[in-house]
């Protein structure tokens, strides 16, 4: 079929209202089917892929990241699928054979200069989607902003090119970040020289460490296990090396760790919120050959 014939056929499908062919054999119907398929693919990828790609999430704020990605992907999939479906279909149906190597253009298309209702519909749908996105984002963000009483305070200090963590009240300053399970934590983040980015990827929280400023972020670790703290703000020469191990441990393990780092048993028990009797005295705690290698106690 020459292009002209194809084109006439397409034109006829919509202009001859008398014996309009069934919906699914018209361009709109075909595009609708392609759209459905593409949307389904997008939704499936959007629901299952992030779970496999993201690192093991260790807190509620971390799960928010996963949920946001899935939700946004599912919302965006139909929109993207529509554009793709139309583009895909246009290549199949509206491209005259060998037009790519022809020096003469195909005959002109229909002179549609616009479609007011369609434009309004398009803008309306995107406005609606934006409002949904915004409500989602605001809800999640405000839930993350809630401060908990009795949260464990950790003072985080960045400098080129190392993080140190101070646990107020215990006298412990460490290079590794140890956190008790199921206990709200408040990080007071600052820097000594330039801006660093304090980023706990598995917990989905991040804030910059600014010199002379204190910024606070909160989370509650829920899952035991190790994680890595990476600097997310280019901070100079050895930025790539600015990462530490950390881990989420049980409160008792946390108390023992504090003691091994030089805290008194009572201060450690107070900070870890466990009975003093459950902690092992410092002298019996084991240290590995490299004294700093005390971080990952898992």
């Amino acid at each position: 079929m020459s292009f002209e014939q194809q084109f006439d056929a397409i034109e006829n499908e919509i202009t001859e209202e008398g014996d309009a062919p069934p919906f699914f054999s018209r361009p709109g119907g075909k595009i609708f089917i392609i759209w459905l398929v593409f949307t389904a693919i997008g939704v499936v990828i959007g629901v299952f892929a992030p779970h496999h790609l993201l690192p093991g999430l260790q807190s509620g704020t971390g799960s928010d990241v996963w949920a946001t990605i899935v939700f946004f992907t599912v919302l965006a999939a139909p929109v993207a699928a529509f554009v793709y479906a139309l583009a895909f279909y246009s290549l199949l149906a509206w491209r005259p054979k060998k037009s790519g190597s022809s020096d003469e253009p195909p005959p002109d298309g229909p002179p549609q200069r616009g479609n007011g209702p369609l434009t309004i519909l398009w803008v309306g749908i995107s406005t609606l989607l934006v409002i949904v996105l915004l409500v989602w984002g605001m809800t999640v963000w405000s839930s993350q902003q809630v401060a908990h009483d009795g949260a464990l305070q950790v003072n985080v200090t960045g400098q080129q090119w190392l993080w140190t963590y101070e646990y107020p009240g215990t006298g412990v300053t460490s290079r590794t970040l140890e956190l008790p399970q199921d206990r709200p934590v408040e990080f007071n983040v600052t820097a000594l020289d330039v801006i660093h980015g304090f980023w706990l990827d598995t917990m989905g929280i991040q804030t910059d460490a600014n010199p002379n400023e204190n910024t606070v972020i909160r989370t509650t670790p829920t899952t035991l296990g190790g994680f890595v703290v990476r600097c997310s703000q280019l901070c100079g020469l050895n930025h790539a090396f600015m990462n530490n191990k950390g881990s989420v441990v049980t409160p008792t393990q946390f108390g023992n760790w504090l003691v091994s780092q030089g805290a008194t048993t009572s201060a450690a028990a107070k900070s870890a919120d466990v009975p003093e009797s459950s902690l092992t005295p410092s002298s019996t705690s084991t240290t590995t050959a490299a004294p700093m290698n005390t971080g990952a106690s898992q």
Binding site: A87, S90, W94, P96, S102, P106, P107, G109, Q112
Partner: peptide, 14 residues
């Protein structure tokens, strides 16, 4: 919308 609307039912000269 403008881009795909322009393509819509056009004669795609590839």
């Amino acid at each position: 919308l403008v881009l795909i609307g322009t393509i819509w039912k056009g004669s795609i000269w590839a």
